[in-house]
């Protein structure tokens, strides 16, 4: 089982609903976030293009953050989800520096926090909060090993890319382009 997400940049409007839904679902303190929206404008007036995408931890198959964690707090859960065991984390911040996607932040309570793909929801058979709330339905979540999962179907049907592939992290968040 390999959990992954595909995000359709053609549909995302950058409303940030994923950000606020994540905050209220996961008690992320105001001023911090586990996911965020990037908007890139290309071209000159009037020949323009924008790519809008919702970003988060890529739950990489080859995660520098897991490798560099001195206490084992950062680890893989079933399905390849990268999480942090809060009470094992000493807040050293090595993982924050090692992440090429800047996906981790230091929680004011002293540990490092990040996206969990809403593991607590997945266990109940639900979708991650960001996927479930998105008004444009631009996010797809599921198991890459299951050819009938939403995410497998979208990756079969559409062109896609990952972020900073040259870092060799094998990210599990795909962007449909």
């Amino acid at each position: 089982m390999r959990y992954a997400m595909a995000i359709d940049t053609k549909k995302c409007v950058g409303c940030s609903d994923c950000v606020v839904a994540c905050q209220t679902e996961n008690n992320v303190p105001i001023g911090y976030c586990r996911d965020w929206v990037v908007e890139i404008t290309d071209g000159t007036y009037p020949q323009l293009e924008i790519e809008i995408r919702s970003e988060r931890c890529n739950h990489c198959e080859n995660s520098p953050c897991v490798r560099c964690c001195p206490t084992g707090a950062s680890h893989y859960e079933d399905g390849g989800i990268v999480t942090v065991t809060h009470n094992k984390c000493i807040g050293c911040g090595a993982c924050i520096v090692s992440c090429p996607y800047d996906a981790r932040y230091s929680h004011p309570e002293g540990y490092v926090d990040k996206c969990t793909f809403c593991l607590h929801r997945i266990k109940k058979g639900q979708q991650p909060a960001c996927v479930e709330v998105c008004p444009t339905k631009c996010m797809y979540f599921g198991d890459l090993d299951d050819p009938n999962s939403d995410v497998s179907k979208m990756l079969k049907k559409r062109k896609y890319k990952t972020l900073i592939p040259e870092a060799g992290t094998k990210p599990h968040v795909y962007y449909l382009i």
Partner: peptide
């Protein structure tokens, strides 16, 4: 259709 917008989600 089961999906609030950011303002509705942020209504808290």
């Amino acid at each position: 259709n089961g999906r609030l917008c950011p303002r509705g989600t942020g209504g808290v």
